[in-house]
Nucleic acid binder design. Structure first.
Lengths: 185, 185
DNA sequence: ACCTGAACACCGTTCAAGT
DNA sequence: ACCTGAACACCGTTCAAGT
């Protein structure tokens, strides 16, 4: 006699994402997730392979969110589009710092996002770069911008940039220089 | 009747650093560290506060190592000095990827390095920047370079840059542009 | 003064048993 | 077909007892 499902993948991922932003990865416990969805922890294994698999789904959902967000920030003007993309990345990181860090695979034991999904999130930036500097250096340019933005955001998030001064000003100064560097030559 | 110490802070940190590079943070277990130094895990608490404290000491030792390394790479020519500093950072990251990541505080539960110690490791780059672009923009320049380098290295380490192409070439291209961006204007 | 075994709380995971 | 309690291995940490 089959028993009705009291929860599902979707709910587990949602609960895990909430717990993640509330208390970091360590707070994403199988027991805590189970508790949120009103079930006992062994039941989770009927819906996900294990904790790593669940966190992998969290990463995938997060990548999907950034992709949608960045896609909505496309701008016909390539220069403005690049700026919008980078600002969008930072805004997302501020809203969901733990999810952002998880995405970049900097937490041990969490599978990296699917390469094709990760690539999709970079598409708008890549398109803007192509229009801005031409196809032969678009990838290099996108990597330059992404590396700087990711590095700045990561250091900002972990407090490594607390050498004093206005962070927003430092960001703006850096962004202007970075864009100039890509478009020059 | 006092009993002689069979181990000490220094040995624990050394064992922890080895375990870290061999298997990541998760491998730095109190039991594993104790085993390496020939003792039982409860004894460790006579030498370090707890696991977080031990990892904090690992971070401090690592920062000390980078500082010494980068200090040795100073060059009278400011332009060459900047390049040497950045290459030095990447070289260190390749040799000790897990220690590098731990330094940037990207692993939950690990205390960030002492700000003044972290600042000391940036000193050579800051000095070169001052000679290169003047004191008023030296900090901004150092941050720009550091953010890009850290972002690139992190993405390289976690495989986020596997969009194809030569990584060393992408690094060289980016570095040239970054330095140009800082020195321009 | 340091080391040890025993113990505790907590975590991920498995599994036989329930409906 | 999903859920549960019981159980296991593993981990960080505490503590009384040894020398």
């Amino acid at each position: 006699m089959p028993a009705p499902a009291r929860t599902g993948r979707e709910q587990l991922v949602a609960a895990a994402r909430d717990l993640l932003e509330e208390g970091g990865v360590d707070a994403v416990t199988m027991a805590a997730v189970a508790d949120r969805v009103g079930v006992r922890s062994p039941s989770l294994y009927k819906h996900v392979r294990d904790r790593g698999g669940l966190l992998g789904l969290v990463v995938a959902a997060t990548v999907e969110d950034v992709t949608a967000r960045l896609d909505a920030l496309r701008d016909p003007d390539p220069g403005r589009s690049v700026l919008a993309q980078v600002e969008g990345m930072r805004g997302f990181a501020h809203e969901r710092p733990h999810g952002f860090r998880l995405m970049f695979g900097v937490v041990p034991g969490v599978p990296s996002p699917d390469p094709s999904a990760a690539e999709a999130s970079l598409r708008p930036l890549l398109d803007a770069m192509t229009a801005l500097v031409g196809p032969e250096h678009a990838l290099d340019g996108a990597r330059l911008v992404t590396a700087w933005a990711n590095g700045f955001i990561t250091m900002e998030l972990t407090g490594a940039l607390r050498l004093g001064g206005d962070l927003d000003a430092a960001w703006a100064w850096g962004l202007r220089r970075i864009v100039a560097a890509v478009t020059a030559g």
